[in-house]
Design a protein around this nucleic acid. Structure first.
Length: 409
DNA sequence: GCATGATCATGC
DNA sequence: GCATGATCATGC
């Protein structure tokens, strides 16, 4: 018995979903993934995608987005956006593959091993309220957590950006057509394109693509990699946004070390103070998938050595949560600066944010145009009275990246 | 040699 | 003027 959409005659499924407003940019983004129907482990293995309960129920969504405010009751929520959504055909191909990946894992008796990291746009998410009541699964005696099909947070963000059409970014696509999307997954397509350039130097890659990039730009390797993927310097990769994939390039030096840590966007001090880990953007980042592309030094040039997709393990995400909460505590205390030092290039303010020595996974350091590029502090600094401080961001430790990612392939 | 703080090129 | 994806520079 296949369950009907909410409005069967129109074939429409009604879904409400929360938005959050980023404190720094006023931009509305998805607060969470969009949870769809529960996965019946015994039924899904006998279904084909077109006739599946997932597709039958959710092929056409009526979406109602409301602004989530933690201190409000549900009655006070303001509806920000209402729209109907059907998947573009390239997206549908990726969703079909995601669905098949989930189905295959269940057929193999691995429902208990399902993870959101398995797939790109369509995930199998746990339902936290009842995830302790395990369910039986086919082909394995081991019980599994109940899971539902869901659209990834990045995909929901893309829906919002498409409907709102005001994020001002230009998008480039990896999949030019439905035909390519039928044959490849995002990951297989990206790795295939990059593998063609393994062992090639940056200058050779530039020649092959008729590029004339400024090597002094800090985005040089990023732009070079985008060119290999057929994406312009000024474009955002649409599929990466939808699948919550962050893309980082890393240089490996002569002595096989990484010299620099990995940065993320600067954070807003108010945002970190007000947003708990569960709703923080740093959590969104570390729960998503990464593409790491490694360039290795050879003489005076670097060559593309290897690339891989990667997800952060559970314990390391807990460590990121710890560092986030320490950062929040420093902001809340107003004890930002602990020492003022005179140096050749001016006055240095040494701060109490979590340092490299405090964690093997991540830390906090400046991320600004210069030291005057500041954001307001919710609590003025007790030592200096400063009401604003140089912008900071979370960084991934370079030895962590070397150990956990580079050396794992 | 590394930790920490400072800073750069680009695109919009 | 600012966000991003990073690299640079100084001093211990």
């Amino acid at each position: 018995m296949v369950s009907e959409p909410d409005f069967p005659l129109a074939g429409l499924e009604l879904k409400t979903s929360p938005l959050k407003r980023l404190k720094s940019k006023k931009l509305l983004v998805a607060k969470e993934r969009l949870v769809l129907n529960i996965i019946n482990y015994y039924d899904v293995v006998d279904e084909e995608f077109e006739e599946s309960s997932f597709y039958y129920k959710n092929k056409h969504l009526l979406l109602v987005f409301y602004l989530y405010e933690s201190k409000q009751s549900a009655l006070e929520y303001v509806i920000e956006l209402v729209a109907d959504w059907e998947y573009p055909e390239e997206d549908l191909e990726i969703i079909r593959k995601d669905w098949n990946t989930i189905k295959t894992k269940i057929e193999e008796g691995k429902a208990h091993e399902l993870s959101e990291g398995d797939t790109s746009y369509l995930g199998a998410c746990t339902k936290s309220a009842n995830s302790r009541k395990l369910r039986k699964q086919p082909n394995n005696d081991k019980p599994a957590k109940p899971r539902a099909f869901s659209l990834k947070q990045g995909y929901v963000n893309h829906i919002i950006a498409t409907l709102g059409n005001k994020d001002g970014r230009k998008y480039g696509r990896l999949f030019e057509s439905k035909e390519v999307a039928v044959k490849e997954t995002i990951e297989s397509l990206v790795l295939k394109r990059l593998k063609d350039y393994y062992g090639k130097s940056t200058s050779q890659i530039e020649r092959d693509h008729n590029l004339d990039l400024n090597q002094k730009s800090k985005s040089y390797y990023h732009n070079l990699t985008k060119a290999i993927l057929g994406i312009g310097t000024n474009e955002t990769i649409q599929e990466f946004e939808k699948a919550d994939i962050k893309f980082k390039t890393v240089r490996i030096e002569d002595n096989k070390i990484i010299e620099q840590a990995i940065s993320f966007p600067a954070f807003d001090f108010y945002e970190v103070l007000l947003q708990d880990w569960e709703e923080s953007r740093f959590k969104d980042i570390v729960e998503g998938k990464f593409l790491f592309v490694f360039f290795k030094k050879d003489g005076n040039d670097y060559y593309l050595e290897k690339a891989m997709f990667w997800n952060m393990g559970f314990n390391d995400r807990l460590e990121c949560e710890r560092i986030y909460n320490e950062t929040k505590a420093v902001i809340r205390s107003g004890e930002i600066v602990w020492n003022i030092k005179k140096q050749k290039n001016g006055i240095i303010y040494q701060n109490n944010f979590p340092k490299i020595r405090n964690s093997k996974v991540c830390h906090v350091r400046p991320h600004a145009i210069d030291r005057e590029d500041k954001l307001p502090l919710p609590v003025p600094d007790k030592m200096t009275g400063m009401k604003a401080y140089t912008k900071q961001c979370f960084w991934l430790d370079k030895n962590y990246v070397l150990r956990e990612i580079y050396k794992s392939i």
